[in-house]
Design a protein around this nucleic acid. Structure first.
Lengths: 195, 195
DNA sequence: GCCTCTATTGACATTCATGTTAATAACATT
DNA sequence: AATGTTATTAACATGAATGTCAATAGAGGC
């Protein structure tokens, strides 16, 4: 927590926005949606809340900017992960791993629970999924089946990143078993395909 | 929205608590966690917010009571659904269907995202899961494998009830395809077992 | 050095939610 | 009818968050 005694720090608009958004991201991870008040973010960033209003216009606009940045990051993470290996066999496993890491699933859940529905304009995302499905559906897999596999991977990844730990504890999985979950799922999906 | 002009309605404590909790449940479904303020619930129930304080003691206590009631409902739903058919083949499909219906998964997600971790004392739930796993693991299935299957079903059900519709749209699944998801998953899990 | 631009801030007004308190009214009991 | 219990409410005090406005202070250009 920065404490500025008297002296002001003047940042470029880019620096200021970056400082604010990174602080907000940290608070989102630690305190959930309740952490995204401009007063709270401002205090933790060591600035006044009026500065946030100046740069973003409103609390809601700051949240929108943060979520846009994070979904962009998620999308590029997925794209990069999928680019590394084009093997159809591994794509779903990769997708699962990326979605369930770094709180990506948690972010999507927040998005979905906060605003009641996700906004349109996610053409890149739709294109990405279409790409994955095309790749999977190549070798004799029914196209609907491919879509359902993707849906399974996506929903499971989201559920895992929200509730994974407590659920695993309830089920009686220890840590080493739980860590095998992504690999296990990927293997099972390949099995499905080769039938 | 009830409008009481002058006349008071005096309820038994049970009636009052029931009215408050059912209104709160409706608001939770419609507005998310933000709908669970005592002022909002009171206005929608047509009573004063002080009445809620009188019956529950505090906002937090009202929320706790609501969540306890809803988790109890979820648990009994699952128990009942599983009791209807003891066939190991159908248990996972049943579990999935029950978890993803009526916003049960959504409730669990709220619980997990609001409080950072689920409270302990869920011995009944743990026992329930152990039961399911025992049933599945009977016919030659590795016990860890059975646990992972349950984890998959639980996480997918949760993810589906949070984000199912927008995800299906992104993937390009139409409604009739999406509705086949539970059956598809159940069939795939049986396939896994019979190998 | 002077001037301009604007990022930053403190002070203020407003709104909303929480919780307390004392008074009131509905209902049961006698 | 009188009385006691308590569910209900209005009024109040408090605190937190949002957003506005005018004043201030860095930093660069002249």
């Amino acid at each position: 927590m920065n404490v500025n005694r008297g002296k002001r720090i003047r940042r470029t608009p880019e620096e200021a926005r970056s400082l604010i958004l990174s602080t907000a991201a940290r608070r989102l991870a630690e305190h959930g949606l309740d952490g995204l008040s401009i007063s709270g973010v401002a205090k933790e960033a060591g600035i006044s809340h009026a500065t946030i209003i100046h740069h973003f216009g409103s609390t809601e606009a700051m949240r929108a900017a943060l979520l846009q940045q994070m979904t962009g990051q998620l999308l590029s993470d997925v794209v990069e992960a999928l680019h590394e290996d084009q093997l159809p066999d591994e794509i779903l496993g990769r997708l699962f791993t990326t979605l369930s890491r770094d709180g990506h699933g948690r972010l999507l859940a927040w998005l979905a629970l906060d605003r009641q529905q996700l906004e349109p304009g996610e053409n890149q995302t739709a294109a990405l999924f279409r790409n994955i499905i095309d790749t999977i559906a190549v070798d004799g897999v029914d196209r609907t089946d491919a879509k359902l596999q993707v849906l399974l991977v996506a929903t499971a990844a989201m559920g895992l990143s929200i509730c994974g730990d407590p659920l695993a504890a309830l089920i009686g999985l220890d840590e080493s078993e739980t860590s095998r979950f992504p690999g296990w799922l990927a293997a099972r999906l390949q099995t499905l395909k080769s039938e």
